[in-house]
């Protein structure tokens, strides 16, 4: 796929210092690495402290692309922002369980609204006390 068509598929919006990243239904490694770059660049330019990755459109996800998404989350945290995944499809979730992937440190939510709530919660606990890790959403 040409660079231009990949570019047109990435549409990151920023709302109140939170980046909203919708992931396309067709997920493949080129696209994810492009998405990764776009998020990190946007994070740098907007100084956003929260990222919400919307995966509701994704119908198929293999362990490799999931690892890439996880790495993306790690990179985002490295830049000092909180990241939450929203709307994993039932089929995707059960397939990932069957693939036995590890997602212990990922934050997930069912709806975007919940996602925001989690991000806000994370921010309050990280500003209140850096050592506090247990709570509702950890």
């Amino acid at each position: 796929m040409s660079e231009r068509s990949i570019l047109s598929m990435v549409n990151i919006q920023s709302i109140n210092g939170c980046l909203i990243v919708p992931v396309n239904s067709e997920v493949y490694d080129d696209y994810i690495s492009h998405l990764q770059k776009s998020i990190l660049q946007k994070l740098k330019s907007t100084h956003a402290k929260e990222v919400l990755i919307d995966v509701a459109a994704v119908k198929f996800l293999d362990s490799f692309t999931f690892e890439m998404l996880k790495e993306t989350a790690e990179m985002i945290s490295m830049l000092g922002a909180e990241v939450v995944f929203v709307g994993f499809q039932p089929g995707v979730a059960s397939a990932l369980i069957d693939l036995d992937v590890n997602f212990d440190d990922l934050l997930t939510a069912v709806t975007i609204e919940d996602g925001f709530e989690i991000l806000t919660y994370q921010k309050t606990i990280s500003t209140a006390d850096d050592d506090t890790t247990d709570g509702f959403y950890d």
């Binding site: 995944f85 929203v86 709307g87 994993f88 039932p90 979730a93 059960s94 990932l96 369980i97 997602f103 990922l106 997930t108 939510a109 069912v110 709806t111 919940d114 996602g115």
Partner: peptide
């Protein structure tokens, strides 16, 4: 355990 993990992945 698997079921619980899957629900967690969904954000529940």
């Amino acid at each position: 355990i698997k079921i619980a993990k899957a629900t967690k992945l969904m954000g529940c």
